[in-house]
Amino acid sequence: MSADRNDPDEAHVGKAIDDDPSYLSAILGHAYRGELDRETTWRSRLDQTTTWTVTVMAAILTWAFSSPDNPHYIVLVGVVVATVFLLIEARRYRDYDVYRSRIRLFQQNLFAPALDPDRGLEHADWRTELSEDYRRPTVKITLREAVANRLKRIYAALLGVLLFAWVFRVTAFAPTQASVDDAAVGTVPGSVVVVIVVAYALAIVVVTVWPREREAKEEFREGEYGEWKDSE
Rank of each mutant, 00 (worst) to 15 (best):
R94E: 06
L36Y: 08
E89Q: 15
R94L: 05
R104N: 06
L115Y: 03
E129A: 04
F65W: 12
R169I: 03
R102P: 00
V198C: 08
Q177V: 14
L202V: 15
T128F: 03
E129M: 04
P117A: 06
L159M: 08
H72M: 04
E213D: 11
V180I: 14
M57N: 14
W166E: 02
L143S: 03
H30A: 08
W63L: 11
V161A: 06
I27R: 00
M1N: 05
S101I: 02
R43G: 11
A146N: 00
F164K: 10
V195F: 05
A183C: 08
G14M: 05
V77T: 11
G14I: 02
I141G: 01
T55H: 12
P175T: 09
L76R: 02
Q108C: 00
S22D: 15
H30C: 02
L87H: 14
V192E: 15
Y99K: 02
D20W: 01
Y73V: 13
W63C: 07
R127Y: 01
R169L: 11
F164H: 07
P117M: 04
V194T: 14
G78H: 07
A201F: 13
E224R: 12
G34Y: 05
I204V: 15
F106A: 02
A184Y: 06
Y32T: 01
Y200F: 15
E218Q: 04
Q108G: 08
A26K: 01
S67D: 13
R214E: 06
T51A: 13
P113K: 05
S25C: 07
I60W: 03
I88G: 06
A178R: 07
R153S: 06
G186R: 13
A203M: 09
V195Q: 10
Y23D: 05
D181N: 13
P71I: 06
R136M: 08
E215N: 12
P113M: 03
A157F: 10
A199V: 15
V147L: 14
Y134K: 02
G34A: 07
V56W: 10
S22A: 14
I154W: 08
L61D: 09
D69H: 12
S191I: 06
G186I: 13
P8L: 05
R214A: 10
V54H: 01
L130I: 08
N149D: 13
